[in-house]
């Protein structure tokens, strides 16, 4: 490289000749548009849903008739429909549903109330909360269903054991959520209450409870599902009635159609309770008006 060549390069750099993208890359700058999704009408959404269900049932029926799947193990919609009719007309459908319903609701109510009360009680004493909390978390981490056989032994084969399992499942969630609510109570609001000369009980009743209620309410929908699970598991292990027992019995006797019937009834039942609790939640929320 000659001196001249070097200086000319240096001079060019000095003059600020910069690297540029080849024009191919910069020629056209395009900008993205905000992605907008077209909303389907309510009717088309429902129509699609109906179509999906019909397709699933039709496909199942066809596959079973054509022996693509073994109708003995998979059963088929026509057989399930017949069994369903028998289950409701001749069988003890209502006894089973009533039994499971009772266990679920009792477990739900007792578990939620006991859990919320326990969670709220932590507000009263820092020392008590510190002592008890590890035990609650320990109990939370234990798979409660593993305790089910023990619970059946203690509470017997009747309704009490199902309720107890449902309570065991629901109580911890309620406790922890309520306690989280208690911890979220604004310390400044508490200061305000004390500056007004409030007693601890007044703070508890007029501040802590209303502030924590939305947290307790938010756990209801989770708890109804857990309570149902608890009741069904209790019935699986040992019971004389209930949808869980029906499923177990049908499975053991290879009455696959009856298994499906019980599962469908259970699903419908669970949905109804979910809707009912959502409705309850709405009313309660309006009551506490946050």
């Amino acid at each position: 490289m000659t001196i001249e060549g070097f200086t000319s390069v240096a001079a060019r750099m000095g003059r600020g000749v910069r690297f540029r993208f080849p024009s191919v890359f910069v020629a056209k700058r395009s900008y993205r548009r905000l992605p907008v999704q077209r909303q389907w009408s309510r009717r088309s959404i429902v129509a699609t849903q109906v179509l999906l269900v019909v397709a699933a049932i039709g496909g199942w029926q066809a596959a079973a008739s054509l022996k693509l799947i073994d109708p003995f193990f998979w059963s088929q919609p026509s057989a399930i429909w017949k069994t369903l009719q028998i289950f409701f007309v001749k069988g003890d459908a209502f006894v089973d549903i009533g039994y499971t319903f009772q266990a679920t609701i009792l477990g739900f109510v007792v578990g939620t109330i006991a859990g919320s009360a326990l969670g709220l009680s932590f507000w009263w004493s820092r020392n008590y909360a510190a002592v008890v909390q590890p035990f609650v978390i320990c109990f939370e981490s234990v798979p409660k269903l593993a305790l089910a056989p023990l619970i059946i032994l203690i509470f017997g084969m009747g309704l009490a054991s199902k309720v107890a399992i449902a309570v065991a499942l629901t109580v911890v969630v309620s406790t922890l959520t309520t306690y989280a609510g208690v911890q979220a109570v604004d310390p400044d609001s508490e200061r305000l209450f004390y500056s007004l000369g409030a007693s601890r009980f007044q703070v508890f009743r007029k501040l802590v409870i209303p502030a924590v209620l939305p947290w307790t309410i938010s756990v209801l929908r989770v708890n109804i599902g857990l309570a149902l699970t608890g009741a069904i598991v209790g019935e699986f292990i040992s019971s004389q009635h209930g949808l869980g027992r029906e499923i177990l019995y049908a499975g053991q006797t290879y009455d696959i159609a009856l298994v499906w019937v019980a599962v469908l009834v259970l699903a419908a039942f669970s949905m109804i309770m979910y809707v009912a609790v959502s409705w309850l939640e709405k009313i309660l929320r309006k009551g506490v008006a946050h």
Binding site: D188, L192, S195, L196
Partner: peptide, 13 residues
């Protein structure tokens, strides 16, 4: 002793 003076903070609470 509490409750003898009115106390108001920046937050309306």
């Amino acid at each position: 002793t509490i409750g003898r003076v009115g106390y108001m903070l920046q937050k309306d609470l």
